[in-house]
Design a protein around this nucleic acid. Structure first.
Lengths: 136, 136
DNA sequence: TTATATGCAAATGATTTGCGTAGTC
DNA sequence: GACTACGCAAATCATTTGCATATAA
């Protein structure tokens, strides 16, 4: 449990800034493209390293997706997500987290429960509209 | 939307059998190792192909994990999971799914909600015991 | 000053795919 | 017999890592 010293480099700051500015939940590659406009010599490896460090520090969150590619969330607070099955986009769900949801399980399981993740699955308005058109 | 004909090959049947027999949620590689005992010439590619086809058919489920590796679940019914943060093991959570959980969001979101996934995070009894020992 | 971080490129690891052959329906 | 699936090996894709150099504290 060595406490590591974190230096605030330009790369790290820009990555964090982009992540906080964007409402969506971008992939490492999307962040790389954004930051590259301001820091043309940054490498993709550096982006990955920083995303991992910032995740470990609890300054950002890493989202699991169905595919191999992960997404990142600049908001470190507990909140739920809403995923579009058609286009894969992930947004924050406009509901507050319900911590009480863990209580029932505490009595029924021999696990020590420390949290939960809830994700809603749906079709976003954009894809919904497009589906209508395609169906005629 | 071409309806594809699915043939029940030995490989496919054995994969399905293993997945249904096992209570845990194995990776493609673990399934490969199990099936290989009965079908020594099966290839890992075939295992992946079948796991994907069975997932598309809704006969099994594919689980997202924090890492790149996916896990598979022989139970196709809607149910929640319980993940150990220490060892990564995933079990079924001993609670019934609550469909009503989606209702609140239907009014608050412009997404067409079609489902949700809930995962509890905790420490399994096995890892909990080990932690105690290590802390002394 | 000195440990931490970077850029680059090569390595990794899980998963997918092309192709010729085998097996199911 | 026709068409799906298989085994094998090579390809792909996201992510990680080794190393020499640069930079924040």
């Amino acid at each position: 449990m060595t406490t590591r010293k974190i230096r605030m480099t330009q790369q790290r700051r820009f990555i964090l800034e982009e992540l906080r500015r964007i409402r969506s939940h971008p992939s490492a590659d999307e962040i790389y493209e954004k930051v590259r406009r301001r820091l043309p010599r940054i490498s993709l490896g550096t982006v990955y390293r920083n995303l991992n460090i910032l995740t470990e520090c609890g300054m950002i969150q890493r989202l699991e997706t169905g595919s191999a590619q992960r997404l990142f969330d600049g908001d470190p607070r507990a909140h739920y997500h809403l995923r579009c099955v058609v286009c894969g986009r992930v947004e924050d769900a406009p509901v507050e987290p319900i911590i009480a949801i863990e209580d029932a399980l505490r009595e029924l399981s021999d696990y020590e429960i420390i949290g939960h993740r809830l994700e809603f699955i749906g079709v976003c308005p954009h894809c919904n509209k497009r589906d209508d058109v395609e169906r005629g």
